[in-house]
Design a protein around this nucleic acid. Structure first.
Lengths: 197, 197
DNA sequence: CGCTCCATGAAACGAACGTTACATGAAACG
DNA sequence: CGTTTCATGTAACGTTCGTTTCATGGAGCG
């Protein structure tokens, strides 16, 4: 069983570097010092391997995140979270999860099973951290989307300075606590309904 | 040549529905009423086909976007842009571009060529629409990231109401014109430099 | 008609894919 | 010791992949 653990860890490292979209067993096996035969033997199938690899990834991200919220934070919660996502120890994992999430958009049957409600669980965490208000869920959605969008931009361009500046701007906006806008959820839905093609 | 145009259009429709990650010629050819032989004949190779398909996608998005900015806008620019991205005529294209962008993160040599600077070109457009200020580029980055992040959330969950509420919150924040925060670019860079792992 | 060029079909190529069958050596256990 | 179980290697299976080869039919043109 310990051999399987070792293989899972090495396979995860390989997926962090090469992605999971076109993953094939033989090159992976060659790189981590085993054979396609043994990967099937230990994990049952390619899908089983990817499943265990993604579970391991989620586990590590979870562990790192729990360590984060245990530490005392000097900066704002959002900025602290941003620094965590862009940390080079965490970014590869988030990139991998990004990949699976986007692949699941076009091929849910193949990839959705590897997403253990990642996005919605983070949304819940953020929502719990926000002050209570009628639009708290929408505010949490906004915060999560900003992290996602800026992270995607950071991963694409590598421009940490610009993306961090953007986050700090939003952070200062958030602290300003702008009062509720006139368009509540119902009126938004009304506007959308008159939009269709 | 007109036959090739027809094939390109049909292939794009197929990619909009099935994605481009695991695209293979024979199923595509079967679905659009041709053969793998002819796809190679017309487009030279699989990569050539994907290249032309993505060009066609970018062309259509571009055309739709130009039509958008030609129309008079009743709502805020950002909300107008959001309604455009989530329009069911446009969202599939943005989803496809999302897919390629994320695939390029892990495999730039294979996919980066299909991204004709999409993200940066939009950034420029947004930047031009914002009032001039020292942090205009960062603000543009923020706006683009919010659209990206919310769009990804919308595509993943289909929850247009919640994501639109989130956008409206940000829109109202933006209108409030919070003054510059203390952390300018230089101080941000300073903070980041002392972050490394 | 004869020639040329373009479009297409049928079939195959070699490679890579996930997976399996079979054999074997080592270790654990009675 | 004999037996069983686990881990592993070798080789193959059948399939699919992108691509190529060869042949053919038809349209345009002299």
């Amino acid at each position: 069983m310990e051999r399987k653990d070792e293989l899972r860890v090495k396979a995860l490292d390989y997926c962090l570097a090469h992605g999971v979209a076109g993953l094939s067993l033989r090159p992976l096996a060659l790189k981590i010092g085993t054979s396609a035969r043994l990967l099937i033997y230990h994990f049952g199938s390619r899908d089983g391997l990817i499943g265990e690899v993604m579970n391991e990834a989620h586990r590590r991200v979870q562990r790192s995140f729990e360590e984060l919220i245990r530490r005392p934070g000097f900066k704002s919660p959002l900025r602290t979270f941003w620094d965590w996502t862009t940390d080079r120890r965490n970014a590869p994992y988030l990139r991998l999860i990004f990949e699976v999430q986007v692949l699941a958009l076009q091929n849910p049957t193949a990839y959705a099973r590897y997403l253990a409600g990642t996005s919605s669980s983070w949304l819940t965490v953020i929502e719990a951290a926000l002050p209570s208000s009628g639009d708290r869920r929408a505010r949490a959605t906004l915060c999560a989307a900003i992290i996602d969008g800026l992270l995607l931009e950071f991963l694409s361009t590598g421009d940490l300075e610009r993306t961090t500046s953007a986050l700090d701007i939003f952070d200062s906006m958030l602290r300003a606590r702008v009062p509720r806008v006139g368009s509540d959820r119902r009126s938004v839905a009304r506007q959308n309904r008159s939009k269709g093609a």
